[in-house]
Structure formats: C-alpha cells, structure tokens
Amino acid sequence: MESVVLTGEEARGEAVIEACKQGDRDAFRRLFERHKDRVYSVALYFFGGDEATASDVTQQVFLKLFTRIRQFQGEAEFTTWLYRLTTNLCVDEQRKRRRVQQFGEGFELSEPRGRRAQEESLARSEVAHSVKRAVAALKPKLRVVMLLKYFEEMSYEEIADVLGLSKGTVASRLNRGHKALARKLGHLRGALLREEREG
C-alpha cells in the first residue's frame, strides 16, 4: 500500500488516520511515533514510575487504537479519543494491580531509561525528582487530571471531555492537586525560584 503524501500538520494528521483505517502499517507506525512519548509519560507517572507497567499500558493503548481506528468517526478530536483510551486503560490496569502495589507516600520512582542523558540531568534536579514522587502519591483521580493538563497541555474542557467529567470537577481536582503539591513541597519554593531564574 502506498504511503500518504503529507501536506500541513492537520491534513497530515487526518491523512494518517485515514491511512490507518485502510490498514496501512506505515501510517500506524507514524501515528505511534507521534504520540508514544506522551502516552508513555502519562502511564509512567500514573503508575508511579513503574516502567514495565507503563510500557505494557502504552502497547495496549496503541493495539486498541489500531484495532478500533475504523470506529473513529472524527466527531471527537483524535487526541481526546487517544487519551480517553489511555486513562481508561491506566485505571483498568490499576484495578488489576491494586492488590499487588499500593500508591502513596514513600513510593520511589525508578529512573526511566529513555533518553538517558536528558533524564539524568532531570533526575539531578531536586525539584523534578520531588515533584515526580509527589505526583505519584496523589489520589489517582487527581493524578490523571494533572497528567493530562501538564503532559498534554489540554484545556479544562478537553480534560472534561476525555474523562467524562464536568469542567467544574476538572477545575476542582486540579485545584486540589496543586494545593497538595504545594503543601507537600512548600520547602522547594526557593529551589524552584532559583531554577526559574537560571532558566
């Protein structure tokens, strides 16, 4: 099957999805490459740094995406559809694993392997490392909205659409998430300001 000729970001996105619907494996790969890091990041933080689970969930997300892509009618934004799938799979997986692993205080995030050099520098940052741990300790319903907001840069409306919540509930959960981070990591205010000054 011929690959799609791409012109412009939007047309390229639509064309890739159309090609995927036709069973084009190259288009599948292209879609995967475009979204894999963000899907993996959401899953990794959702599961408190568990790389194996995050990899497993990421694969499940794309497998489901590819097997169901013919159902995608375009009435929902593709990213909304994708992250609804991602969060649903995270929640499902969490239910399965609840008896094995509890989230919460003291849970240590292992360092991700990808982009080792970049990650090592980030890991050295006290702020980033502490925020990872604090996010991992948030309640799942707060953690999900935080991840969609800060990894996907979604608007309140988009998050509400993905999670099937009201915009007010999204706002409330983000508010609680922000306050929880601030209360837990208030001692990092100075370090954060220093990092911001140093760019």
Binding site: V39, R113, G114, S125, V131, G177, A182
Partner: peptide, 25 residues
C-alpha cells in the same frame, strides 16, 4: 499556594518511551 503547585507541576519532565515498544505492538 495554588501558584506554587502550578509551578511545581510545570516542572514535571516528559519521558521518552523506551525503544522496542513498536516491535511488540
């Protein structure tokens, strides 16, 4: 407090997916 929480959340680094995922898929 909320603004501090937002600044902290904005410092979350994105993480690259490991190699080999596509082959599994």
């Amino acid at each position: 407090e909320v603004k501090l929480g937002i600044r902290l959340a904005e410092s979350l680094p994105s993480v690259a997916a490991p190699a080999g995922l596509w082959e599994g898929i």
